[in-house]
Amino acid sequence: MTDDPNSPQKPKRPAIQRPETLRAETQRKPAQARPEPVQPETEQAAQPSASPEPTAPRASTIRVTPSPQAMSPQPSAPEAQAQNLSAPQDPAAQIPVTQPPTVPAEELAELVPELTPMFPGASPFLARFLPHSPPTYAGLNESFCDLHAFLKYLHEHSWYGYLYAVLGDQTAYVLLFEGRTVTAAAASATGEQALGELLNLYEQGASLSAHPLSPVYAHVLSGIGSRAWKFNLTEDFTGLHARPTGAIFYARGEIVATLPATLPYEGAFPAPLRPQTLILPRSLAGWAHHHYNLTLRGRDGMNAITDVYQVFKNEYGATGLAFIRALGEKLTPAEYAMRSDAALHDLEPMVHSFLKTGYIREV
C-alpha cells in the first residue's frame, strides 16, 4: 500500500540517536571545558604559566607504583565515562608528567657498581686503577713456593687477577688474563721490565699475594701501560677512561664499573682485543731469545715416515711438534710465544729437553 499524497501528514516521531552518536556528543562536552595540555618539563620550567588559575595536572601513562585504585577491579567503559562526567577526578591519584619515574639508588648501584681502589695514591698507572680484591693466595715467598711453578699453575687454571710483590718500599704489580701475564708495572718500569722486577723482588725475599678479578675487569685493565691515549668512545670500546673526577670501566661500549681513582688529565687506556703474553727480558730469560738449529735427529723428529717421529710425537705431542717446527724456521722461543700465545714457562722445559736429547743445538 502507498501513502496518498493528498491525505493529511502524520506528525513525525523524534529521531532516535544511535548509541555511537550519543557517546560522541557526550565525549565532546567535557573536551570543551578541558584545560590546556601541560607543557613538557623543560618547557614548563622555562615558561611560567600566564594564567593565575591552577590547572589540574595531566595524567601520565607511566606509574611508578600501582595505586589502590589500580589494584581494585576497574569499572566497564560506560561506567567509567559516567564517572568522568559526574565526578571530578582526584589529582592525588594521578602522577603529573613533570614527575618522571626514578630508579632507586640501590638498583643503580647494582647496575653500575663503584669499585674501591686497592692501592689509592699509587704512582704506577696499573696499581692506581686496580680494584680492591681479597687475596686468594697471600704470604708466598721464595723459601717454600717456586714462582715459575706457581705461574704455571695459574696458567693451567686460566686464572684472572693480579699479583702484588712487596719488599720494603719496593713494589711490583702484574696483571694476569687467562693465567697469562699481560701487563705489569713497577716504580720505574712497565711491561716486560716490570715483570722482571717482580721476579727479582721475589728472588730477594719479597712477599707475594694473588688477588682475583672477574674476566671482564681483567680485560678492561689489560691495556694499561706507561701512557694514556686520547679517549674516543665507540660502540665496541673496551678499556679504562680516566678523568680528574674518577675512572670508568668500559666493556664493548658499555659502562661496567666506576672507580674513584683519578688522573690530572683525561685519557684512555684501550684494551687489546686479545691481550698478549709478556715475555721476560733477555737478562732474565736469555734462552728465550736465542736461536736454535735442528740436528739430523731433530729433522727426523718432524718426518712422519721415520721411527724418530713416532718417539718424538709420543713424548711431546702436537704442541712439541709445532714448537720444534718453529725453531727450525729460525724463530726464537720468545717470538714463537708471541705468535702462538704460548707461555714461556711451558716452553722452557721443552727447550732444555730438546737440547738434552739432541733434537736441537744452540747457535
Rank of each mutant, 00 (worst) to 15 (best):
173 Y>Q: 08
208 L>R: 08
161 G>D: 03
95 I>G: 02
179 G>L: 05
121 G>R: 04
124 P>L: 09
206 A>K: 02
202 Y>N: 08
214 S>I: 03
164 Y>H: 15
223 G>M: 09
137 Y>K: 09
198 L>M: 13
132 H>S: 14
157 H>V: 00
136 T>R: 14
226 S>K: 15
123 S>Q: 14
181 T>Y: 00
161 G>H: 04
144 F>Y: 13
190 T>M: 08
225 G>R: 15
97 V>H: 08
116 T>Y: 01
185 A>D: 07
182 V>A: 11
178 E>V: 01
97 V>Q: 09
222 S>C: 06
203 E>G: 11
88 P>F: 09
183 T>E: 06
194 A>F: 03
94 Q>T: 08
87 A>Y: 10
141 N>A: 10
89 Q>N: 01
165 A>Q: 00
224 I>G: 05
189 A>I: 03
116 T>V: 15
215 P>L: 07
216 V>T: 14
178 E>Q: 10
225 G>K: 14
187 A>H: 13
155 H>A: 12
211 H>R: 12
163 L>H: 09
206 A>D: 02
131 P>N: 02
201 L>M: 03
90 D>V: 12
167 L>T: 00
89 Q>V: 06
227 R>H: 15
107 E>M: 10
165 A>E: 00
197 E>V: 14
171 T>V: 02
215 P>S: 05
115 L>Y: 04
108 L>I: 06
98 T>C: 02
123 S>T: 15
178 E>C: 04
120 P>T: 02
